[in-house]
Amino acid sequence: MSVLLEVENLAKHYPVRKGAILARQVGLVRAVDGVSFTLNRGETLALVGESGCGKSTTARLVLRLIEPTTGAVKFKGTDITTLDGATLKGFRRNAQIVFQDPYASLNPRYTVGQTISEPMEVHNIGDAASRRARVEELLKLVGLAPYHAQRYGHEFSGGQRQRIGIARALAVEPDLVVCDEPVSALDVSIQAQVVNLLRDLQRRLGLAYLFIAHDLAVVKHVADRIAVMYLGRIVEIGEKRALFSNPRHPYTRALLAAIPHPDPSRKGRVTPLGGDVPSPMNIPPGCRFHTRCPYAQDICRQQDPVLKDGVACHLADQLPPAGVDFAGGLAPNAAKRLALYAEAAARS
């Protein structure tokens, strides 16, 4: 498999200033604080972690919608943080984004057809007639109908608007699509439609996804590999099955233990992690997780662990095993009726 994207030691720090005229710097928000990962062609890497851990900032840095404080983003071997002019435009065509809020990301005065063909116009692709044909093709690809091109965004439901956002991102045939919480605002039945669509498109078009989400069950369904972020850093990264069956970082374990399962026989098994996430203006010294970690030792308060073999924890090799029990699954009656549902849905 060939590498599409290489992110090296990426950081984004925001100075915090006080005072109106002679503003002086009173602090530094370390939104992203040394992140490295690779993404292969046709692969899905998920970024997970709690609110404020730096997922969206990482996404923006990767697309160079914002400038990094330090670090490199190599796309097909070229560092895009140094590009400008035509080469930057070429990169932008290859890397697209789908946002969480399909309502906010669509121009209300544009028809759906205009919304989808705008990126093609920006990149001078085709003439008016071929763009119209391409819009029709894209609408069909995402499960909408050609006549929808004449309608406006507000006439569509949340799930349909997300389909429009996906069609727009695919219009210029990118290799990389960054999905920033693409299904988080949708109802579960619609979320499932969009998740199925994204997977189907990936298989057909060979897309690579950088997929940001906070729902680990969704992530497990769509991702090949998962990176767990905490306070601006990746604390664990790995193949998804290994990460769920043998989570090595205490924070990954805490995340998995906090998920309520749709299975009442496991009632009461959810175990909360104590405390709150510290402010990214005030990241704890040593291991940034030590203020909440049940295993913290002296070394954790003094030395910042580096990401090694996919985990950043001094004690990773000494912790007792923990992981999701994959033996559960649907109850027999539920499985039987779901199978009937699927059969009936396929027939009608």
Binding site: N196, G329, L338
Partner: peptide
């Protein structure tokens, strides 16, 4: 609804969706 949610304890190619 049950078919629409991905589960940690099961691998499915496609979600059922409604």
């Amino acid at each position: 609804l049950l078919g629409s949610i991905p589960r940690l304890d099961e691998d499915r190619e496609n979600l059922l969706a409604i």
